[in-house]
């Protein structure tokens, strides 16, 4: 079962898990982790290919975590379980097949709410998480060949957003591209763009650009599915647009 089926019980998550602490004036805690595969797998069409990051990240009272690497998956899951709040833990089905090194430590924890600069750069900040990182990193590699040096940041946590790390990077590069599989309207990228305007407007040399899934339900046909999803080429195009190169 994937997060596509979580809508069958979204009331329990949104109306109960997320709000009980607040509604009870701090009396009733809801310490729970909802973990499962999120986002598009491959060719499973409209009802099984959705990114719920922005859905859950919209809700005060929830934490939303979505790791890219195996090490982060381990460290963040442990932190999520120890967290006293409801945590939505979004995994990616395609990343299950990818191998990463994992540190051999007895108690390996990665803090919730901390982004990670995965690749330092000076020309443009590329923000992503989960499978979006594969497109971001591939794009950064290609951009470097064209002497555009991208700083790639893995958000890891979608709520709360690590704005400090984002703003620090944007102040340095002056340009920002967000990458997500979800739909553009009211997406995570939209929220980040708004927050950058609030907190670092004077540092921007170009408008923030979003790379997202197309604004359509996921089609089944192989050619259309490819068009609907973000990829490295779209990230490169966005990075070149904001760097005017």
């Amino acid at each position: 079962m994937t997060f596509n089926f979580s809508m069958q019980a979204i009331d329990q998550i949104v109306n109960s898990a997320a709000k009980t602490l607040y509604m009870s004036g701090g009396q009733v805690e809801c310490s729970i982790v909802f973990r499962g595969p999120n986002g598009a797998a491959a060719r499973v069409a409209a009802q099984h290919s959705q990114d719920f990051a922005s859905w859950y990240a919209h809700i005060p009272g929830l934490k939303v975590v979505s790791p890219y690497t195996a090490a982060d998956a381990k460290g963040l899951l442990k932190s999520a379980i120890r967290d006293p709040n409801p945590v939505i833990f979004l995994e990616n089905e395609i990343l299950y097949g990818k191998t990463f090194p994992v540190p051999k430590l007895d108690d390996y924890l990665v803090p919730i709410g901390k982004a990670k600069v995965v690749r330092p750069g000076k020309d443009v900040t590329i923000l992503s998480w989960s499978i979006g990182m594969t497109y971001a990193l591939e794009a950064a590699e290609e951009l470097a060949k064209k002497h555009i040096f991208a700083e790639v940041i893995d958000l890891r946590t979608i709520r709360p957003l690590d704005m400090a790390t984002i703003i620090e990077s944007v102040k340095k590069t002056g340009r920002c591209v967000t990458v997500e599989e979800g739909w553009p309207q009211f997406g995570v990228g939209s929220e980040i763009a708004a927050r950058i305007m609030d907190e670092a407007f004077d540092y921007l040399d170009a408008p923030v650009k979003r790379v997202t899934g197309e604004d359509v339900p996921m089609p089944y046909a192989a050619n259309l599915e490819k068009l609907a999803l973000p990829n490295a080429a779209k990230v490169i195009e966005a990075a070149r647009a904001v760097t005017y190169r």
Binding site: R43, V44, A45, A46, Q47, H48, P219, Y220, A221, L224
Partner: peptide, 8 residues
């Protein structure tokens, strides 16, 4: 039209 697939 190829947009739904096996399940839809």
């Amino acid at each position: 039209k190829g947009k739904g697939g096996s399940m839809h």
